[in-house]
Design a protein around this nucleic acid. Structure first.
Lengths: 237, 237
DNA sequence: TCAGGAAAGATTGCATACGATTTTTGCGAG
DNA sequence: CTCGCAAAAATCGTATGCAATCTTTCCTGA
C-alpha cells in the first residue's frame, strides 16, 4: 500500500498548529488501517500531500514516533509501526494496569451529561456493527476505541488521558494486525455493561468489568509468531 | 535564572541522535533544578549552547514538551514547565495507579543481578542523604527517582517504563516546587523495605509498600495554592 | 546467466534564510 | 514622572538548499 493511494481531507483548523493537524490525520489513517503497518511515510511525500514543507511534515512524524505509531530509523525514514506480538502484549498489560483505575475514577465523576455522551457513543458503535464491509469494520474498531477514550476523559486526569490515547491507538494497530474475527459485538455488550455500572456509581463493578473486557480483547488476538520474527522484520511485514 | 548561566557537559555520544542527547541533558538540568520552572528556553540560545542549529534545538524542545517537562506557547517559545497543584495531584494519582502494578511485575522478574544493581542504587542514595548542601539535595532527588526508574526497567514493559520516565521526571519538578523538607530519609528507608519485599518475591507486600511510599511522598508536598494561581502564572514563577 | 560493484537517484539530517509575530526600547504628550 | 504608542530588536514558524547516507539501477566480468 502506498501513501499516495489515499486522499486526506484538507487541513481546516488553520489557526492551530499545522503539524498537529497533520499528525491527527495521519493517526486516524493509521488507526483506521488506511495506512498499513510498515508503510513508508517519507517526509517529502507527506509534505506534498498536505501542502507543507518537509519541516512541518517531519514534526508531525516525530510526534507519531513518540506515540509509538510510527517507527523511525536514522537516515532511512519513518514507517507505520508494525508492533511485534511482544509489543502487543505490553500494550495490553499496560491497559490492564491503567484502565480499571480509570474506570474507578470515572465512576466517581459521572454526570448526566456524560451518560448522554456515552449513550450516543454506544449507539454509533452499534450502527457500525450492524453494517458490513471492511469500511464498517474500520469504523467499528475506531468507535470501540473512542469508548475507552471517552471514559478516560471523564476520569479527569489529563496525564492518564494522554497515556490512554496512546494505548488505544496502538491497540487499534494491534487488533488490525493480530485480531481474529468477531470479538467486536461481544465488546459492544461489554461496553454497555460497563456504562451501566458507571451510571450506578458502582465503581468496583465497572473496574472488574473493564479488566475482563481487556482480557477478552486480548484473548481474541492471535499473538503466536508466524514465520519467525527475524524474517518478518527483515521483510517489514 | 538564565539558561546561559549554566554549563552543560559536551555531547559525547556522537553517533546517536543529537537532538536526543540535548533532550537528555536539558531533562537532567530541569529535574536537577539547575533550570528553574518558568525559565525561557529559546531555540536560538539552546542551539548556541549545544552548538547546533535551531532545527535540532527545536526538536529537542519538542520532545521535552511531549514529556510535559516543557510548555510551549505558539510564537512565544518554550519554558520549563511550572506544574500547578492540580497537575501535581494528577502526576501522583497516575503513579498510584501504575507503580504498584510495576512493583508486582518486577517482583516476578528479579534476578540476583537486579538485586546487586538495586543495592548499589540505594547505597548511592544513602550517600547523598548523608551529605549536606543544595547540590547533595539535588542529587538526592534524582537518585530517589532513579530507584523508581530501575524498578520500572526490571518490570520488563517498555511502554510502562516510558510512562514512568515521564512521571518520575515530572515528580522531581513537583517535589522541587512544592516539597517541604525532610521526607527524603524516610523515603530511603521505604525504598529499602520495598527492595526487601522484592528480593523475597513478596509481590503483594512490595506493591502495598509502594502505594504507601507514593502516598508519603505526596503527603510531604504543600499543594495549597499560595497567592492565587492566576498571579503566579502571569508572573511565570 | 548471475554475482559484484560503481554510478545515478532518492531521501534524510541539518543549517540557513526570510516573513510573521511578539517583546522590548525609546520618545513625546499629558 | 508616568502613560501610550511607534519603531527596533528579538524570536518564532516555515521553506529551501546542501551534504551525507541510503537505495536502486545498470553495467561488467566471470
Amino acid at each position: 500500500m502506498n501513501i499516495a493511494d489515499q486522499t486526506f481531507p484538507a487541513v481546516d483548523s488553520a489557526n492551530e498548529d499545522r503539524a498537529q493537524a497533520i499528525r491527527d490525520q495521519l493517526r486516524d489513517a493509521i488507526v483506521d488501517r488506511r495506512l498499513a503497518p510498515g508503510t513508508k511515510l517519507s517526509e517529502g511525500e507527506v509534505g506534498t500531500l498536505f501542502d507543507v514543507s518537509r519541516t512541518v511534515a517531519r514534526a508531525a512524524l516525530q510526534m507519531l514516533s513518540f506515540e509509538g505509531l510510527v517507527r523511525t530509523e536514522r537516515n532511512r525514514g519513518a514507517f507505520v509501526a508494525n508492533p511485534s506480538p511482544e509489543e502487543a502484549r505490553q500494550v495490553f498489560a499496560s491497559r490492564r494496569l491503567i484502565e480499571p483505575g480509570i474506570a474507578i475514577a470515572a465512576a466517581g465523576r459521572m454526570t448526566p451529561a456524560h451518560v448522554v455522551a456515552f449513550k450516543a457513543q454506544l449507539d454509533e458503535e452499534g450502527r457500525f456493527i450492524a453494517e458490513r464491509g471492511p469500511n464498517a469494520r474500520r469504523s467499528e474498531i475506531k468507535a470501540s476505541g473512542d469508548f475507552h477514550l471517552l471514559l478516560a476523559s471523564v476520569a479527569g486526569n489529563a496525564i492518564l488521558q494522554r497515556f490512554m490515547e496512546e494505548l488505544v491507538a496502538r491497540s487499534s494497530l494491534v487488533i488490525a494486525l493480530y485480531g481474529r474475527s468477531g470479538v467486536s459485538s461481544c465488546g459492544h455488550s461489554e461496553h454497555m455493561n460497563i456504562l451501566e455500572a458507571l451510571e450506578n456509581g458502582n465503581s468496583e463493578r465497572a473496574s472488574a468489568l473493564m479488566l475482563h473486557h481487556i482480557d477478552h480483547i486480548e484473548a481474541d488476538l492471535d499473538l503466536r509468531v508466524r514465520s519467525g520474527p527475524a524474517l518478518r522484520q527483515a521483510l517489514e511485514f
